[in-house]
Simulated scan of single mutants.
Amino acid sequence: MKTISIISQKGGAGKTTLAIHLAAAGVEAGLSTLILDADPQATASQWSQWRGGSDPEVVDCASPTLLARKVQQAADLGADLVIIDTPPHADIMAREACKLADLILIPCRPQAFDLSAVETTADLVKAAGKPAFVLFMGGPQRAPATYKDARELIEGSEGVAGMGVPVAPVMLTQRAIYHHSTAQGKAANESEPEGKAAEEVAALWTWIREHVNLSTRKPTRGKRSAA
């Protein structure tokens, strides 16, 4: 089983949007996939209710002391992929999620305040010693200079130190379908399977699958519970 933790100390960075779309991609690939909703706002859990309870399963886990137990239960029940959706401004939960992760993703909008907030998250992530990447979310679709400047701020440039965390080579840009689909209990690639957002999600899923060595050739399994 692989565990992906989505961490950001800033609210509104796109953590739940990222978690939902990764989990939906995992289900589509035939993997037994679970979201652990560690955010007290329980946005992923609300999405699951709108979805009518179909996979991926979403399990509430607002207590950092229970997080490791929930991940182990998921593994014991045969889950292939667990995605931990963490709350902002929660160092204890973020640290615990980092410890449990095979891969850490830090969603970030390519804007000044968001980029500045990455530094705090990067310090938490580096202490865990796990593979981690900043992933740009919600930025303009065509703004190469914006992304170049944002990447240099995070990764550093000649003579300028970065934040010590690399930037993922894929991103989810600002597209209305990401928000419209979640309000319907779906993911963008389910609402518009031939759309540009679906292409972005597919590229992200391919990169993650290869990065954590996830097989996607398993038959879809029945639903399991880690509650």
Score class of each variant (00 low, 15 high):
144 P>F: 03
140 P>Q: 10
188 A>S: 11
138 G>Q: 11
119 E>M: 09
139 G>F: 01
177 I>V: 15
180 H>P: 00
168 A>V: 14
159 G>Y: 08
137 M>K: 03
140 P>H: 05
175 R>S: 11
141 Q>S: 14
124 L>F: 05
170 V>C: 04
166 P>A: 07
138 G>F: 11
161 A>W: 00
142 R>T: 09
181 S>I: 03
184 Q>D: 14
185 G>A: 05
153 L>F: 08
182 T>L: 06
115 L>D: 12
132 A>W: 11
132 A>K: 10
125 V>L: 07
183 A>F: 00
120 T>L: 15
185 G>C: 01
123 D>N: 01
144 P>W: 02
175 R>V: 10
155 E>M: 11
148 K>W: 04
132 A>H: 07
120 T>R: 14
141 Q>Y: 01
125 V>T: 08
161 A>N: 02
155 E>N: 11
157 S>D: 11
153 L>H: 01
172 L>R: 01
116 S>H: 06
120 T>K: 14
185 G>T: 08
148 K>N: 15
135 L>S: 02
170 V>W: 03
124 L>G: 00
126 K>E: 08
181 S>D: 12
124 L>W: 05
181 S>P: 06
183 A>G: 10
135 L>F: 10
142 R>V: 08
121 T>W: 09
177 I>M: 03
121 T>A: 14
119 E>N: 06
144 P>S: 03
161 A>K: 13
119 E>G: 01
166 P>M: 07
117 A>E: 06
125 V>E: 07
173 T>A: 14
116 S>N: 09
166 P>E: 09
184 Q>E: 15
138 G>S: 07
129 G>K: 07
149 D>E: 14
133 F>N: 11
131 P>S: 07
138 G>E: 12
120 T>I: 15
148 K>L: 15
131 P>H: 09
141 Q>A: 13
176 A>R: 07
163 M>N: 00
142 R>W: 03
114 D>Y: 13
119 E>F: 12
135 L>D: 02
128 A>M: 08
174 Q>T: 08
180 H>T: 14
126 K>V: 15
163 M>S: 00
174 Q>C: 02
142 R>L: 04
156 G>Q: 05
145 A>Y: 01
157 S>Y: 02
154 I>A: 06
160 V>T: 13
152 E>H: 10
157 S>G: 07
119 E>P: 00
118 V>C: 12
142 R>A: 03
140 P>I: 10
122 A>N: 02
152 E>G: 01
154 I>T: 08
124 L>Y: 05
162 G>A: 01
178 Y>L: 01
124 L>C: 01
143 A>T: 06
143 A>S: 15
182 T>E: 12
138 G>C: 12
161 A>M: 04
145 A>E: 13
174 Q>W: 05
135 L>V: 15
178 Y>S: 08
171 M>R: 15
159 G>S: 02
164 G>F: 07
184 Q>N: 14
148 K>Q: 15
166 P>F: 10
145 A>F: 00
157 S>N: 05
157 S>Q: 05
144 P>K: 02
139 G>D: 07
118 V>R: 02
116 S>V: 13
162 G>F: 08
176 A>H: 03
139 G>Q: 06
145 A>L: 12
128 A>Y: 03
172 L>K: 01
185 G>K: 05
186 K>N: 05
165 V>H: 06
157 S>W: 00
175 R>W: 03
